[in-house]
Design a protein around this nucleic acid. Structure first.
Length: 424
RNA sequence: GGAGGGGUGGCUGAGUGGACGAAAGCACUGGUCUUGAAAACCAGCGAGGUUAACGCCUCCCAGGGUUCGAAUCCCUGCCCCUCCGCCA
């Protein structure tokens, strides 16, 4: 949610900045809503003030033992007029709130223009694209019988998977490794959180009301949803709170499954486990003082990068262009890992600074000097576990059909250095 | 699932339908005193909206209702606690 007060004085500027992300801010509608708001608020509050004054006078008169009947008569239809004004004001406010909730965050000045991911800008890269002296396979062929889509389809449907044996174990090892690294080396506190959240939580982080179709709702209960990312429960930990200044920064890491409808992606990434309705992710969340959030974005991104390096996976970092930027983010740096099976870089982490956009929706504040101020929130994948699994399989495959277990993962695999998966 | 008891500021906790955004204590901030600190004393101290400002408005879990007037009375929901039952 944008700052209403800022919007009031910089509406035209906001419209121009939002063009960077291809959002059309309706200045006329905004002006109309704002002027109605002002008129209705004034009318309502004037009537309230009048009612308060008269009621108070009745109280005083009664205490003195005077006859209050004439005073009550004087109130007349004030109550009805007030109810009427308030009803109109409430209706307008609902409309206004809906309008404001639908406005995405302002992109930072450093966000490059562009309409699609093709216009994202690479800012750095690490490692060389893996080369093979044999014909590399993709993760589906490497994993062989350890990946069962047919059974998953029978149980659940398309875009689900079942992993077995060493593959399931490798998946678990990746998550455990990431959690340990972030808690022991990067100063994050591990959180175990609910996988089902209410609508307010999703509203707080910005998935609702605009992206309802991408969420899995719980049947029979409009208010409950499966989490699309740990960002939702973890960031909402601070909803409706005023944190003491010395509590910041908060650094949380959480491993959860993520559930996404993947609406609008039919026919895309249908092979393998690149895009599923359910996948695991280790998520990093930071809550910081406003002046530190840009440094925090760099830091958080470097924490995610550290995982890729330790797993010996070549990657590049790109800044998302305006058109590719998520609704709530002011700036996002994606980490893309090299996938030999696809011959291209694919997103494996998305690190964003939301500034006070989420904090404003969540009413998450801290004590700053005399008063309170909204915190800044950030998050990033550290990393997506399923895609990390793909990357390990494809980058560390050997000519003899085995997969080398990177040294960092070996302690989590009882020292195993090579994996061999049964072929169908 | 059954029975009962509760939700009031950062915390504890008073609050009779009328001067209550709300006693008191703790915590916190400033001051006096002190070589310094502690103690004591004095003062300040919830959040949000709106306004150029004075001010006005809203908020005592949430939503309805009664009333000239609701923290207070009524209804519904949510959450917490205790006991019983069930359960991993």
């Amino acid at each position: 949610m944008l700052d209403r007060n800022y919007l009031r004085h910089h509406a035209a500027e906001v419209r121009d900045v939002l063009k960077v992300r291809g959002f059309d801010f309706d200045l006329d509608r905004y002006a109309a809503l704002e002027s109605s708001r002002k008129a209705l608020q004034e009318e309502t509050e004037t009537l309230q003030a009048e009612r308060n004054a008269k009621s108070r006078a009745i109280g005083v008169a009664k205490a003195r033992g005077e006859d209050i009947a004439p005073r009550i008569a004087e109130v007349g239809d004030l109550g009805r007029r007030l109810d009427d004004a308030r009803a109109r004001f409430d209706a307008l406010r609902g409309e206004f709130d809906g309008f404001l909730e639908g406005i995405p965050n302002l992109p930072d000045g450093s966000v490059p223009p562009g309409d699609s991911e093709d216009e994202n800008v690479e800012i750095r890269s690490w490692g060389d694209r893996t080369v093979f002296d044999f014909q590399p396979q993709d993760h589906v062929d490497i994993a062989g019988r350890a990946l069962d889509f047919a059974a998953a389809a029978r149980i659940s449907g398309a875009r689900f998977s079942i992993m077995s044996g060493d593959l399931a174990r490798l998946h678990r090892a990746l998550a455990a490794f990431m959690l340990d690294m972030h808690t022991r080396e990067h100063g994050y506190e591990e959180l175990y959180v609910p996988y089902i959240v209410n609508a307010d939580a999703l509203k707080g982080t910005g998935q609702l009301p605009k992206f309802e179709v991408e969420q899995f709702g719980i049947r029979g209960d409009e208010n409950y949803y499966l989490i699309p990312t740990a960002e939702v429960p973890v960031t909402n930990v601070i909803r409706d709170t005023i944190l003491p200044a010395d509590a910041l920064p908060l650094r949380y890491v959480s491993h959860t499954p993520c559930f996404r409808r993947e609406a609008g992606t039919y026919g895309k990434d249908t092979r393998g486990i690149i895009r599923l309705h359910q996948f695991d992710k280790v998520e990093l969340v930071q809550v910081v003082e406003p002046e530190n959030s840009w440094d925090a974005l760099e830091e958080l991104t470097s924490h995610a990068e550290a995982v890729l390096k330790r797993l010996e996976l070549p990657y590049r970092a790109v800044v998302l262009c305006g058109g590719d930027l998520g609704f709530a983010a002011a700036k996002t740096i994606d980490l893309e890992v090299w996938l030999p099976g696809q011959g291209r870089f694919r997103e494996i982490s998305s690190c964003s600074n939301y500034l006070d956009f989420q904090a404003r929706r969540m009413m998450a504040r801290y004590r700053a000097g005399d008063g309170t101020a909204f915190v800044h929130t950030l998050n990033g994948s550290g990393l997506a576990v399923g895609r990390s699994l793909i990357a390990v399989l494809e980058n560390h495959q050997q000519g003899d059909g085995t997969v080398r277990v990177p040294e960092a993962l070996q302690p989590y695999m009882s020292g195993t250095t090579r994996l061999r998966f049964e072929k169908p």
